[in-house]
């Protein structure tokens, strides 16, 4: 499993932010400038293709922060 820094880099690409955003594990998903349905699809694809992990829309709704998504993927990959 990647480090959180690698995961954040992949997450940033997957969401396709319009403007540069500085992300941390503590970043709250719903406060991100482009946390919308398109971003959710991008993150689901990224988790599948980069980590071989299936996450659902409900999984993402249950995550508060970017670190929560990382922990979920790490747990499923373990």
């Amino acid at each position: 499993m990647d480090t959180i820094a690698d995961f954040i880099a992949n997450f940033t690409t997957a969401v396709d932010f319009q403007d540069p955003v500085e992300l941390r594990a503590q970043s709250v998903l719903v406060e991100l400038p482009e946390w919308d349905s398109l971003a959710a699809l991008g993150v689901i694809v990224m988790c599948d293709m980069e980590y071989g992990v299936t996450i659902t829309g409900s999984d993402l709704k249950g995550c508060n922060s970017l670190g929560d998504v990382f922990a979920l993927v790490a747990a499923r990959k373990a």
Binding site: S37, A40, L41, I44, D48, T54, G57, L60
Partner: peptide, 12 residues
Amino acid sequence: LDGPAILNFSIR
């Protein structure tokens, strides 16, 4: 449309 559900289904 439930976009994430359709995505999960399609790629699965």
